[in-house]
Amino acid sequence: MPLRQVLIAPHTAIETVHFPEEGFVSITTDEPSGRVEIGLIGQEGLIGAAPILLDDDRSPHTHFVQMAGHMLSIDVAVLRAEVERRPALRRVLHRFIQVQFVQTAQTAFANARGNTATRLARWLLMCHDRADGDQITVTQDFMSFMLGVERPGVTAALRVLADGGFIRKYRGIVEIINRDGLLDLAGDSYGRAETEYARLIEGRFEPNI
C-alpha cells in the first residue's frame, strides 16, 4: 500500500476491505473548512470494518495510507459470507469496531482538553504503536494537517517535545527516543482505546483507567 493511497473514498461503495500487515492508515473527516484525522488503524485492525459489518456499504470518511507498507485484501462479499459462517470471526471483528468507537471518542476528548503538545504526543504514540521501529516518516505540514492546527503551532509543539528529550526531529522524520516521556505528556488523552483493545481483542486484562 503506497503512501497516500486512498483505500476508501467518502460516500463511495466499498468493494474491498484491507488488513494492514505493515504501515498504517488514517481515517479523516473532510469538510469545506478542512480535513482532520479521526482514526488510525494498523496491523491490529481491518480497514472498512465498521460500515461493512454494520450493514452499510460506504463511509462518509476518507481512509488513506499514512505510512506505506503491505496489506491483505478481501472482497466484501467474501468477508460477509465468512462472518456469517464463523461466529467467532464476527465476534472479534465487532469487538474491533468497538475499539474504533473508543479511539474516536478519545480523539474528541484529546482535541477538546489537550494543548497542541499534548495532542501531538498522543498522535506520535499512536503512530509509534503501529510503526516498525522508532522512526516515523512525517512532515510538519502533514502533522498540521492531521491535528487540524496551523504549522507554527506544530513547530512549537515539536520544540517542546525535542527540548524535553522525547523525540529527535530530522527532515521528514520524527524519531521517538523517550516513549515514557511522551506517555507522561499525553496523560489521559492516550491509553483508553489501547486498554480496550488489550481487553477485548487480546483478553489480557481488565481496564484500570
Rank of each mutant, 00 (worst) to 15 (best):
I14D: 04
Y170W: 09
N178K: 04
R4G: 03
L147H: 06
F109L: 12
L89M: 12
A9G: 08
R130E: 06
V102M: 11
I173W: 07
F166T: 03
A117F: 13
A121W: 13
T62S: 09
P207G: 08
L183A: 05
F205N: 02
G42C: 03
P32V: 07
V83W: 02
A81N: 10
I209H: 12
F64W: 10
E44G: 09
A108V: 14
V78N: 03
A117Y: 12
R130D: 04
E175A: 11
T137L: 12
S59Q: 05
E194Q: 15
R159E: 15
T12V: 13
H94E: 11
V25M: 04
H63S: 10
G69V: 05
D180H: 11
M1C: 10
G69R: 04
G187F: 07
I173K: 14
F205I: 00
P87D: 11
H94M: 10
P152R: 09
I41K: 00
G148Q: 05
T29F: 02
L7I: 08
P32C: 08
D30T: 12
V92A: 00
P2D: 13
A108L: 14
E202S: 09
T107W: 15
E202V: 06
Q43S: 13
M71I: 02
I209Y: 12
A117W: 12
E84F: 02
